[in-house]
Amino acid sequence: MHDKNGDGHGHGNAEYQWNLFDSESYFQHYYSDPHPDDKLVMRHAVEALKAAEPAGDLDIVDVGTGPNLIPFFCALGRAKRLTAWEYAATNVDWIKRELDTDDMRPQWQTYWAWAREAYGPDWTLPANPIPELREKCTVTQGSVFDLPARTWDAATMFFCAESITERQDEFEAACAAFARSVKPGGTLAAAFLVRSGGYVVADRPFPVLKLSPETIERVFKQHASDVKAELIGIVEREVRSGYSGFIFLTGTAT
């Protein structure tokens, strides 16, 4: 992600080596062992997208996808088109490789089963989502700060805006760009890390901004209506190294 000017404190986005991000190490640490909190986040995301307007298939973007297929699993039931908007070239290549083979990793089989469960029996979803994802998904290399405005019907964002900077001004700029990328009346669904002091990928440090539901609601109410931020899975110990829970946000773009 590129630099954003502002008066925030802490290390800014441009100070980190995103071009050296080790995608496979990140996947192995954060997604190789499916966790009950992942299932909760997926359920919230699916419920938000199932209720998204307008009715019918949607053009959906996931922002800051990283080495992760979970956003696509959550969106597939509603998507006529999917866009992965991801900055790091290593992550772009990783996503393309994952979608290039029909042989899902065992972990993806678990996550996909959770997505199908969240959609419920009234939705017809394939046993293997990869071929359909490959057909519908475009992987675009781009910064969250450069998202085009009023382009998609719905947008998701899993652990992006708070994990690219330590600066509040950059976080708010990323959230604003995310919210503005959706047409008025479209659905916003996003998950944020809680109680995190940063994370390390293959011995390289990366940032996380500490957040509360109140902070997130304040930021998004400037760009959306019906904003709700809910704490999920908050525990006194870390879920995985780097965080101890999530905040899940929903809203309607204005």
Rank of each mutant, 00 (worst) to 15 (best):
L82K: 05
A173L: 12
S181P: 03
L49S: 02
C137E: 04
L211S: 06
P121C: 04
P121T: 09
K4D: 10
K221R: 15
N91K: 01
S143H: 11
L76Q: 07
D100G: 09
G142V: 03
D37E: 12
F171Y: 12
N128P: 01
V200R: 09
Q141E: 12
V201D: 14
G142E: 03
Y16H: 01
N128I: 05
H11Q: 07
L188D: 04
Q28R: 03
R43F: 08
M1T: 15
S225F: 09
R237H: 15
T138L: 05
F248I: 12
K221M: 13
V219T: 15
D203K: 12
F171N: 00
Q107L: 14
Y30W: 12
F171T: 04
G142L: 01
A52Q: 04
V182K: 10
G185K: 03
R78D: 02
L133V: 06
A45P: 05
A224T: 07
V182F: 05
T124Y: 13
A224D: 07
R180Q: 15
E53N: 15
A113G: 14
E236A: 14
G251L: 02
A229V: 10
V46F: 12
L125V: 06
E172V: 14
I130C: 08
D100W: 03
W108D: 07
S225L: 12
L249S: 08
R150D: 15
F21P: 07
N68P: 08
H29R: 07
C74E: 13
V144C: 10
T250P: 03
K39E: 15
H35P: 06
A154N: 01
N128D: 06
W108S: 06
Q28E: 00
S196N: 10
A14R: 10
T254Q: 15
Y111C: 00
